[in-house]
Design a protein around this nucleic acid. Structure first.
Lengths: 230, 230
DNA sequence: ATATATATTTAGGGATGCCTAATTAACGGA
DNA sequence: TCCGTTAATTAGGCATCCCTAAATATATAT
């Protein structure tokens, strides 16, 4: 497994390219990573030798296909972790960003997906940028039914809610959030649906219900096991 | 900030000392860390120079006070993270252990406490060993009231449940778990108490209620904000 | 166009943490 | 006790990633 320094450089290069809409310059990279310019030149030559960047001396650094993929992966890792730290653990934004920088290199791909799934595949990072989609995100979208398509009596666990924050908050205040188990009570006219969550029955219109992805579950003694019980 | 390699060595040395009830031998450390024996000798000399271990050539390595403290901290980090991975994210035990090995060096002290708090200051690691207490754990115990001491009408968030797993599970099935908000409805004779959680009223005996630590909260529009809403 | 400032690269080293090979110390059985 | 085996250490090197100083290329202003 290669150095986490490579990841750091790639991530920075991607960031600078996006920011300046042009090749990443040696000095900018050096400033960003708080290393000297010669260190950057050296590392960039190494990255070029590994086929991760295209390096044109005195011009700047561009990402190759392979480099861009790697960089995007790390960026996604960073964002998912930042979101997790801020939203789940309540770390403040500034710290969350810094901590995510450290963690992004230590978290495996598998665990990252599990973190993402735990949060219901969030779409926006606390820093305001959209979070890149991962395999786990598309799997949910492609393979899990939306609430409005579920049959009466079936049950499952809310896995993703693809709604704007305001709607999400409203659902949360009704007790319907990612990770929560639910049972479909009644399907009504025009796609409306009523579901049971933790003893409360909620009625949802089709526009809402068609944006809630649910992982189907078997019923266990009248109660669906909730994940994350500690 | 010093190398994460030092942390790895210290953790291993602590592990071996506990396991063999004697000084950690060079070869054992080498095997454990999958490095050569000379690498161990070298690093151990460095650790000794920094006052973290007592190193007696041909005899073995012991931890100094400072080294033991550092090692215990890392051990605790590892355990809390392992618990988190296994219980919250659902990573299998073997993987959880491996992943925790990577993460333990990247997670800051602050974030670790927040992870610990999120889980309600667990006492046992999935590996079966007891988890060392941190500052956050003792704070809860010393500063937060237990449920049985709370006044009628007061509310808060369940922060720690100091009960055996079986009792915990029973509470979970009643909807009472760490992170859940509750309102004290009625205090009854002999320390019994009834609480409202998510619309359900639960009655608890004193033995149980006196082991549930609650972080007091102000009521917000009739509903206590739940942490970790994503 | 040219002088000056800035960016970049080359040259030469240093710290860290790992390795193999060779040497030396400790241990256990005949 | 002595010898062979195993463990530990010393010696010498390598890869990674960083640095400063000096040289060179580029950009800017007059």
């Amino acid at each position: 497994m290669q150095s986490e320094r490579i990841e750091e450089y790639l991530e920075t290069i991607l960031y600078l390219i996006n920011k300046n809409k042009g090749p990443a310059k040696t000095k900018k990279i050096a400033d960003e990573l708080k290393v000297s310019a010669p260190s950057v030149t050296e590392m960039v030559q190494k990255l070029a030798a590994e086929g991760l960047v295209k390096y044109t001396p005195y011009y700047g650094v561009e990402l190759t296909e392979a480099g861009a993929i790697k960089a995007s992966k790390i960026r996604r890792k960073h964002q998912v972790l930042e979101k997790f730290l801020a939203d789940v653990l309540g770390v403040n934004k500034t710290d969350a960003h810094k901590e995510a920088c450290e963690l992004e290199h230590a978290v495996s791909d598998t665990v990252l997906e599990q973190v993402c799934t735990f949060m219901g595949h969030p779409e926006i990072c606390p820093d305001g940028n959209p979070i890149g989609q991962g395999k786990c995100c598309t799997t949910v979208e492609e393979q899990y039914p939306v609430l409005s398509e579920m049959q009466e009596g079936s049950c499952g666990i809310v896995s993703m809610i693809k709604l704007p924050p305001a709607d999400k908050d409203r659902l949360i205040s009704l007790g319907l959030m990612v990770g929560e188990s639910l049972v479909v009570k009644r399907k009504q006219h025009k796609g409306s649906i009523s579901v049971l969550t933790r003893g409360t029955e909620i009625a949802l219109g089709n526009e809402i219900a068609s944006k809630i992805f649910v992982k189907p579950q078997r019923m266990i003694r009248g109660r669906v096991r909730r994940r994350g019980r500690h």
